[in-house]
Design a binder for these strands. Structure first.
Length: 357
DNA sequence: TAGGCCATCTGGTCCT
DNA sequence: AGGACCAGATGGCCTA
């Protein structure tokens, strides 16, 4: 999905239906996304409700920025204003060119910050996409599907660990696909080379919103999940290191069983030099890509260090995935990357489930 | 063409 | 005062 955001912003700013408060057609030279229509609230003390119902009526109140110092029009002269209750409060200030420029600058800065913020959020989402099962370059999961799949993935892994048993593939995929859309379910199935029909009949659609557990209450309302046992984790691109760090005592028994002694190796930073278990093939269907270069980062993962990446070369926070090929080249704004952003995959994802497009 | 998804702008609110 | 965060609104792109 590629398109010019600048064009969007421009067209949007000029869209007649956009939330322009006070139209200023004579000052429409701003093509950088800032709506030239808006006028600062504190400087144009308009009643918000009445403004929202005007929908462009304020074009009558154009501010003549070419020759004004008296940029404010007389409200009482407008025919529309005769039908509205007179605005209370102090009379608004004159809109001088200097005020307009200050407001524009402020809006431009705020817009840039908001863009950066959303870019950081999208980068984090993209990072999440790459660690949930079935990462695909050609078929990118939507934001909401990424979150849903991640939720299911966490739940499935937690269940696996808490039960101490290895689930069968179908149960695992069923859990992964709960509440996902049909295309995403197909993607997961294709990723695991399963026929979606083998588990779709048990997949119930999303319940009504009022019946859906909130994200906060999700752990309290677990999916019915069976763990008949068999193949051993990690599934897909799961890196168990984060689990070791979370509750090593509670999970130690299960981990020992699941990883067959890998736990003892992993808890020793110096001795850990690879994935906790060999690349797993469930029913011979999983395809793993293992990059040995990430072993070094796995070692760092358990010592709470983070690798310095060459691309940014400064603080080691510039790139999220520094080890696993092109998928690791996600520039992250340093200001937006916190520890929370450095999930287990960022500390080294040596084993990755790849969906072959 | 409708609907889903997305980026962007925007004003409000809260916090530092 | 300024920044972060949020939600509403809008329009573009894509696909079934």
């Amino acid at each position: 999905m590629t398109k010019s955001r600048g064009e969007d912003a421009l067209s949007e700013a000029e869209a007649p239906g956009s939330r322009a408060w006070i139209i200023d057609p004579l000052c429409h030279q701003d093509a950088k996304g800032l709506s030239p229509d808006a006028v600062p609230r504190e400087e144009e003390e308009e009643d918000r409700d009445s403004l929202k119902h005007q929908d462009g009526e304020d074009e009558d109140e154009d501010l003549d920025c070419e020759e004004d110092e008296e940029l404010e029009e007389d409200e009482e002269d407008s025919p529309e204003n005769e039908q509205r209750p007179r605005r209370r409060g102090p009379k608004r200030k004159k809109m001088t060119r200097a005020r307009l420029e200050r407001f524009r600058l402020r809006r431009m800065k705020a817009n840039a910050r908001e863009r950066n913020r959303m870019h950081g959020l999208n980068a984090a989402l993209d990072a999440l996409r790459r660690v949930v099962p079935c990462y695909s370059k050609s078929q990118k999961l939507s934001k909401i599907e990424t979150l849903r799949l991640a939720r299911n993935y966490i739940w499935a892994l937690s269940e696996t660990l808490s039960s101490g048993k290895s689930p069968d593939l179908v149960s695992f995929v069923q859990t992964l696909c709960r509440g996902l859309s049909q295309p995403t379910t197909n993607l997961v199935a294709g990723c695991l080379q399963l026929n979606p029909r083998t588990f779709l009949p048990e997949q119930s659609p999303d319940p009504p919103p009022h019946l859906q557990p909130s994200s906060a209450s999700f752990p309290l309302q677990p999916y019915p999940y069976q763990s008949p046992g068999l193949p051993s984790p990690p599934y897909g691109n799961a890196d168990s290191s984060h689990l070791f760090q979370l509750k090593p005592q509670a999970y130690s028994a299960a981990l020992e069983q699941l990883f067959e002694g890998a736990l003892t190796d992993c808890t020793s930073p110096s001795s850990f030099d690879g994935p906790p278990s060999p690349p797993l093939s469930i029913n011979g269907n999983f395809a793993f890509k293992h990059d040995p270069s990430t072993d070094f980062e796995k070692t760092y993962a358990f010592t709470m260090h983070y690798p310095v990446t060459s691309s940014t070369g400064t603080d080691g926070h510039g790139l999220v995935y520094s080890g696993a090929g092109p998928r690791c080249d996600i520039p992250i704004d340093n200001s937006t990357l916190t520890y929370d952003g450095q999930s287990h995959q960022e500390r080294g994802m040596g084993t990755q489930l790849i969906f072959h497009d």
